[in-house]
Write a protein that binds this DNA or RNA. Structure first.
Lengths: 188, 188, 188, 188
DNA sequence: CATGAATGAGCCTTCATTCAT
DNA sequence: AATGAATGAAGGCTCATTCAT
């Protein structure tokens, strides 16, 4: 009844798969479970057991980033200035989207493959809502900006930066776009 | 032998293909030349003769909208107020992107399939540049906003609206997002 | 009842087609009637009227070379030495096969598309037979060498030279191979 | 995960495919992977998994013959008379080319699909070179005959025999042509 | 005669998913 | 649990040939 040693094996496999998937995402290669199985030297079946779909794997790859964003958001709630808190959070979010190719599709997807993802996205919206609420309460933000707009807007900014150019200054560009947008969202 | 404007029957086929493609685009179905051939009851070869790739067809579908945008842009140059001119143009652009599903992929694509598309996109950027130039000259717009940013930003706004919800209020949402952004772009 | 002016047109078209086909053959491009129609700026139908199949066109392209070979063969009959006559003829034949890419397929084909080709190939075999006959009569050639072997052997030599290398020394190589073969065919 | 020599069932499929391919080759039908899949009653994917291209399959079909030729060549090295050794080897080679329709395209192809084929062709050239070397050393062969000429010449002889007639006496014809050629290659 | 649009069989290839081993 | 062979629908594209204009 002790946790069998297979557990360890399985865990290692899981890690290997995710690691390789991360590499593929980083180099812009579309995730295909067959392809991954070959690269990690496992049977397709094994990969499928761990990740029933490519989306599930992608979401898993994106998870750490999502977690970090949530964590950052929580911290931002401790900021003195509501405006700075919200700004910092949104900036981080946009940077993450532009930096981590796993994020945009996960963030924009209407449906999730993993419960964990749903949970994290909810948590993210939740901090966003709270941060925005503080800003609203302080009267520093446009009244017609709802918390449901935050994610779409961040996706939009990241998307715009990607359209701008495939170059390496996308973070730069994204920040510039976000700055302009925030300028419009906040009340002076 | 003279490259005539297309024979009557061929022209009819061309129209049928484009019409069906437009329907598919509207209902969100991805364009596939084989699929289209089946639907229009023509041999695949016929469709391929008219449109060598799905992109070419998509661009053809998008063409009227692009033309309308360019036309509107030209008119906007006649506006008294540089700010109104630019705003009107960008609004139309965003509305078009949200309204016509053929536009976003064409607008965001780094390469075009048809010369006509390249031409239209160039024309569009051109009016945009001129409208922005007037605004710059009048000192009503952020100095760091370059004309190369216009297209990406409009794509971003439209994308954000699409992420927000698949519902029918996307135009509404897009306008709202654009308003906020413009608020940030223009100098008060 | 006078030969209509269309004749002239048609003749010019015919020439254009053959000229372009020759170019294609020379550059190793496979002959496709559609392709050719585009290049000569004619309707496919026109090309088809002149040449019902690609083979017919290829044979037409090969015709002048075949005629030259026949002509040379006739002259070779006038040579004093039967051996020299045959040798010269075969050398020319092999050179032609290696030099003119239209020849090998036509020579090796079991069936012809054009009567003219059949005629020429027959004429060629005929001179070959007569030249070989003279050599036989003079007792300078292996008894088991039949006139039906001449064409295949020349095709074989050319083919060998082509296999040897795609380089430009194929004529050279072909001559070397033919020399060796002739050494074996003639009696010393 | 260890690249095992193939699972039992997979091996059976492999054999079936190769067997059917061999039949097709023998009856002169061009190899098409889809066609084969249909004939062996397997999914196309299965055939593609085993043989990525038609060439790979063709080479696989040709492999046993190539192996036999190499084996024969090795034995020929043991022959007393260098001339007999070389003659025997070349005869076998030509016979194989005329007998096995899989051989000519593989032999004449400038590039190979399978490493095994490259290996075998190299081995074949190698024995050829050694056999020719012995003949050269014994001074029984034309000085201008290089080992690179062997393959082309054998291909040429086989080709000539095929041109001669599609009949069943091609082996006969090929032998006759080879005899004549050898007569010219060896020094009396 | 010339034109060239239309045809559509036919070939190639990929990939998500299942399932026997 | 792991494996990886098998599947086959699906999509892409070409090209020889016909025939209405």
């Amino acid at each position: 009844m002790t946790s069998s040693p297979l557990r360890k094996d399985a865990a290692r496999n899981w890690e290997r798969i995710v690691a390789v998937a991360r590499e593929l995402v980083d180099e812009g290669t579309p995730l295909q479970l067959n392809d991954i199985a070959r690269r990690v030297q496992m049977g397709v079946g094994t990969v499928y057991r761990h990740f029933p779909t490519a989306e599930a794997l992608l979401e898993t790859v994106a998870t750490p980033t999502l977690e970090a964003l949530v964590a950052h958001g929580e911290k931002a709630l401790a900021e003195e200035d509501p405006r700075d808190g919200l700004t910092g959070f949104l900036t981080r979010t946009v940077e993450a989207q532009v930096t981590d190719a796993a994020l945009p599709p996960v963030a924009a997807a209407p449906a999730d493959a993993l419960p964990r993802t749903t949970e994290l996205k909810r948590a993210l919206r939740s901090v966003g809502t709270r941060l925005l609420g503080r800003a609203h309460d302080a009267g520093v933000v446009r009244a017609d900006l709802a918390s449901e707009d935050l994610v779409p807007l961040m996706c939009g900014v990241a998307f715009a930066a990607n359209v701008h150019g495939e170059a390496e200054d996308r973070v730069e560009t994204a920040r510039r776009y976000l700055t302009a947008l925030l300028e419009g969202l906040f009340i002076r």
